[in-house]
């Protein structure tokens, strides 16, 4: 008898021995449990197998990630869109379509027209400050060629200029323009001046060298007048009326304390009218802000 035969004999005997079975009650209990399981948890519609098991979780994760990215993208773009919207194009039709920008542009024009009437006075005030401005202009980034006078008619407010904007010069956006003023503005240029002023005032990134170049130009040069007005300050230079994206952002972000400091600085320099206008603007934006006692005397209109 070979070994395999003996093993087969063992198995045969075992099969004769193996007759035990579970009791019927046990069978019933197990089968009942199996049926209950089906009642409590029905079968899935689609039984995923293999890689398909991960299809739904991966898809859900992808949707979540994509949504988060899109949300962040929209949030980042939204401030830019809001700041960019007020920019008025060169075409008159687009100016009308500028929506909320149009009223501001008109207000700016009106104000600038009103300002034009007091230009001679400002010229006298600004005259002593031409030299410091020239010095500051020289310290500015490398000069750029002065642009030719732009046609006034259809170019109300320039959009983002074609030339690449120079890097922001913090000094240019300082709320306190300091004692520097531009060259004497030309009185005869009052007619085209408002439009030119609007154009020049629109982008807050006007390069200083342009002012420097125009400062040396004739009195009839509109850019110089614009620069002077900007240097003088006032409501025109208020970020509210500047259409540059950066200025808009600053306007929105300028806290009340900052505005009060600007007002106080204007009063110290004797520029009461600008201080009053800025104070009016301050009150429009922060009607309920309580001015500290220490600042009241410095900022309140006299």
């Amino acid at each position: 008898m070979t070994e395999n035969d003996r093993e087969d004999e063992i198995r045969r005997r075992y099969r004769e021995l193996a007759r035990e079975e579970p009791p019927r009650a046990l069978d019933d209990a197990i089968l009942a449990a199996a049926r209950r399981e089906l009642e409590t948890r029905p079968a899935p519609l689609v039984a995923p197998t293999g890689r398909r098991r991960w299809t739904v979780p991966v898809a859900a994760a992808a949707v979540i990630v994509l949504s988060a990215v899109l949300t962040l993208h929209v949030q980042r773009e939204q401030p830019d869109a809001e700041l960019g919207a007020p920019q008025v194009s060169q075409a008159p039709a687009r100016k009308d379509e500028a929506g909320p920008v149009a009223p501001r542009a008109e207000m700016l024009e009106d104000k600038l027209a009103a300002q034009a009437n007091v230009e001679p006075q400002r010229e006298k005030l600004a005259a002593p400050n031409v030299q410091p401005q020239r010095q500051r202009a020289q310290e500015a980034p490398p000069a750029k060629a002065a642009k030719p006078v732009q046609p006034p008619a259809s170019s109300a407010l320039a959009t983002a200029p074609a030339e690449p904007k120079p890097p922001a010069d913090p000094g240019r956006f300082s709320p306190d323009p300091g004692p520097v003023a531009a060259a004497p503005p030309p009185a005869p240029a009052s007619a085209p001046a408002p439009q030119m002023q609007m154009r020049q005032a629109a982008p807050a990134l006007q390069p200083a060298p342009r002012a420097a170049d125009s400062a040396g130009a004739t009195a009839a040069s509109p850019p110089a007048a614009v620069e002077e007005r900007r240097a003088i300050g006032g409501l025109r230079d208020s970020p509210r009326f500047e259409t540059g994206a950066l200025a808009k952002r600053e306007a929105v972000a300028e806290p009340p304390e900052k505005m009060l400091e600007r007002i106080a600085a204007l009063r110290r320099e004797g520029r009461q009218k600008e201080a009053d206008e800025l104070y009016t603007e301050f009150r429009k934006r922060f009607p309920d802000y309580r001015i500290p006692e220490a600042m009241r005397e410095q900022v309140l209109p006299r």
């Binding site: 035990e20 079975e21 579970p22 069978d27 197990i30 089968l31 199996a34 049926r35 089906l38 029905p42 079968a43």
Partner: peptide, 15 residues
Amino acid sequence: GAAAAFEALYARHKA
């Protein structure tokens, strides 16, 4: 979801 499938399975393997 086939209850009868389990019954067949059980009958085959229970002993």
